[in-house]
Amino acid sequence: MDIQRCSESAIQVRNLTLKYGTRLIQQDLNFDVDAGDIFVIMGGSGCGKSTLLKHMIGLYKPAEGEILYGGQNFFSSSEAEQQKMRRSWGVTYQSGALFSAMTLAENVALPLQQFSNLSVAEIRDIVSYKLALVGLAGYEDYYPARISGGMQKRAGLARAIAMDPDILFFDEPSAGLDPLSAQRLDELILQLRDSTGATVVIVTHELASIFAIGSNGVFLDAETRTQLDTGSPEQMLNHSRHAKVRSFLARGEMSTTHNTLSGREARS
């Protein structure tokens, strides 16, 4: 399995078109995520990053195109194979998505109870360890409603990494965290990648994170509804053909003026 993972891309996205009903969100997406990559999905707010992620984790079926995991097409696989693939992933949601009727410990323990043969005591120890990793040691018995939004996100992360997944999908993990926690989170993601060899797909706006951890990425555009560029963040910042991508990554500092119909511009 590992040998295969090194030899080919972990995830291949081919001619993907994303729609909600008839509403087009993105089209003609083509990119590869290599094993061990930290792959950043970038783009302005509302351009369809979360939508792309939800398609990649198999929640929505793409209108067109395919997504291959280790060469296997997810959406044409059998239900049993899909379940198996899903179990090798860890996912966090933009909203946390903790099970509100369960304590944090029960949340993190759920996948372990369902898919491993560990004893209750072993599960408890693993749960404590995972919660400690995300800075939530001692919060085992809290219910999600009783912790802050940032803490919920971190608890969601602990649940996602409970099974040491091969591929991790994060939707804006550091939004709503203070700068120090966000930095710790970046470190954690790098550590996870290095220690378990996981592939990480991450949606984020944080430029600091993008440059600190991103090794590859794709930039989605809301206006043209397609990807503008792929490659590592540095490469995109310095060499992208699109001013929009460069200006996004430079925090708008080289922003081209908007076409706001000012008289002088139009007359000249």
Partner: peptide, 21 residues
């Protein structure tokens, strides 16, 4: 109401991606 709220909170999605039906 319970299941609907779980849909709204993306808890059902989270279950699906954990590989649980």
């Amino acid at each position: 109401a319970q299941l609907g709220t779980m849909q709204v909170n993306e808890e059902v999605d989270a279950l699906v991606t954990l590989g649980i039906r």
